[in-house]
């Protein structure tokens, strides 16, 4: 597979290496996926005679904490990539570890929120609002879990060993997974006000 060009270095006329091009296309499709769900939200809300205020139904302080946790995870994600650029592996391990920790905290808080609702007997079939709430946040949580699994792989020795043989390629991988991670973060930044505050 070494013979496929531009797997590591950028192609001069596009300015991208293959994986970076690929991830941007993937993110474009993700925009359309969440865009479809958001437009579903808009249509359901405008078509409904009464729509509840998210702040009356959900725990806004917990949601705010989660927003901060996720933004912090994005910052440490960038720092992990910077650490590789500086060829500083301990710093990379630390910052990527922090990102993983943030994703864990996010999922725990999300589980607490879900659990509280379930214990009060509030399931997706409760109302149109909860249907779209569980669908949007559930799909987002799946994205977090998927991303965290990939990050975990790069954090463990099995993934990091590529650094020794192909440091540039490994840095690219972290950049690409970082782009995905920022996107998932960005989705939450839309989800939080739409579901919790409006």
């Amino acid at each position: 597979m070494e013979m496929i060009p531009y797997t590591v270095e950028a192609r001069p006329d596009t300015g991208l290496y293959n994986a970076k091009f690929g991830i941007w296309l993937f993110l474009a499709s993700e925009v359309m996926l969440f865009g479809g769900l958001f437009s579903g939200y808009v249509l359901l809300r405008t078509g409904s005679p009464a729509w509840p205020h998210g702040s009356d139904l959900l725990n806004v302080p917990l949601g705010t904490v989660n927003t901060l946790v996720l933004i912090s995870s994005s910052v440490s994600m960038v720092l992990a990539w910077v650490a590789l650029k500086e060829k500083n592996i301990p710093k990379f391990k630390l910052t990527l570890g922090l990102t993983l920790l943030c994703s864990l905290i996010f999922m725990i808080i999300k589980a607490i929120e879900y659990g509280t609702k379930f214990s009060h007997g509030i399931f997706p079939k409760e109302s149109a609002y909860f249907a779209i709430y569980y669908t949007l946040t559930g799909l987002h949580a799946l994205h977090i879990v998927g991303g965290a699994i990939v990050l975990m792989y790069f954090w463990l020795p099995v993934g990091t060993k590529m650094w020794k043989t192909q440091p540039q390629r490994f840095t690219n991988r972290i950049e690409v997974v970082g782009l995905y991670w920022h996107f998932v973060d960005l989705v939450w930044i839309f989800l939080f006000p739409v579901l919790y505050l409006l």
């Binding site: 499709s29 359309m32 969440f34 865009g35 579903g40 997706p124 249907a131 669908t135 799909l139």
Partner: peptide
């Protein structure tokens, strides 16, 4: 174009399995 169908499929699955009413 395919992702919005995926979104719709997820909603229909929720309607069928989780009892929502999208």
């Amino acid at each position: 174009a395919f992702p919005p169908l995926l979104a719709a499929g997820v909603m229909q699955l929720m309607d069928r399995v989780a009892g929502t009413s999208f």
